[in-house]
Simulated scan of single mutants.
Amino acid sequence: MLRAAEPGAAVVVCSTCRFSAAAREDEGGRRGGALLAEALRAVQAEEPDLAGVAVQEMPCLFACKRYCTIHIRAPGKVGYVLGDFAPDREAARAILEYAARHAASEEGVVRYAQWPDGVKGHFITRTPPEGYLCT
């Protein structure tokens, strides 16, 4: 069930996530999570400064009441699960900008003033790194 992933900062995309609150798939039969992963990689191709965070896919993050869900993680840092994104480049850019700031931070905590507008209101949970609890 588990497969190895490259260590380091990553945005893990739920590849099977719904397209939207109202639809499982777009008009072409594609899931929102798969489209969001494509958009993330397209933004990275256009903006190499955002390519330092890996885009990884896995089926189902178990946030099924939400759609286009992602997990931002890095070793030894607080992680975050976010959702309810449109699977487009604007959302992808905001996610990658936040993930890059998260990766550059000491503990995975990014000051609110540095959050891109596109991630505000999308946070679902935060997860402590193994061996630590948040204070």
Rank of each mutant, 00 (worst) to 15 (best):
K120A: 11
S20Y: 06
T69I: 09
A5C: 11
E47A: 14
A4Q: 11
S15F: 03
E38P: 03
G76N: 07
T135S: 07
K65R: 14
G76E: 06
T69L: 05
G131W: 12
D26K: 01
V78K: 12
A45I: 02
V12E: 07
C17W: 01
V81M: 06
K120D: 05
R93N: 02
L35K: 03
K77I: 07
Q44H: 04
P128L: 11
L133N: 06
Y132Q: 15
A113N: 13
G79N: 07
D117M: 08
I72D: 07
T125W: 10
D84R: 03
G108H: 09
V81G: 00
R30W: 00
A51Y: 10
L82C: 07
M58A: 15
R24V: 05
S20W: 03
F62A: 07
R126C: 03
A5W: 10
F62Y: 15
F19I: 03
I72R: 08
R89M: 02
H102A: 04
D84V: 00
V78L: 11
A10H: 13
A39S: 06
R73G: 12
K77Q: 15
A54H: 14
A42K: 10
C60Y: 02
I72H: 09
Q56V: 15
G121S: 02
P59H: 01
E27F: 00
V119N: 04
G52E: 14
Q114F: 14
V13D: 01
Q56Y: 03
A113Q: 15
C14L: 06
A92P: 08
F19M: 04
L133A: 08
L36N: 02
L40Q: 06
E25D: 12
L82R: 03
A22H: 09
V119D: 04
D49G: 12
Q44V: 10
A54L: 11
C17D: 08
A4R: 13
L82M: 11
R111Y: 06
V13G: 01
A5T: 14
E90Y: 00
Q44A: 03
L133C: 04
A51M: 12
C134V: 14
V43W: 02
A100S: 11
E38M: 00
P48V: 13
A5V: 15
A22L: 13
P48Q: 14
V13L: 04
C60Q: 02
G29I: 03
W115M: 09
E97W: 01
G83Y: 00
P87F: 03
C134S: 12
E97R: 12
A63G: 10
A37C: 00
Q114P: 02
R89S: 04
P75A: 12
Y80D: 02
T135G: 13
V110S: 06
L40W: 00
Y98G: 00
R89P: 01
R89L: 10
T127F: 14
K120P: 13
F123Y: 10
R101D: 01
P128V: 08
P59G: 12
G8H: 14
A94V: 04
Q114C: 09
V81T: 13
P116D: 14
R18C: 09
V13K: 02
S105W: 06
Y80E: 08
I70A: 05
V110W: 10
R30V: 01
V81A: 07
E90I: 06
C60K: 02
H102S: 10
C64F: 03
C134Q: 15
A94L: 05
T127I: 14
L40Y: 00
A34R: 13
K65S: 15
G118K: 08
A51T: 11
L2S: 15
S15C: 10
E25A: 05
C64V: 01
A51I: 10
V119H: 05
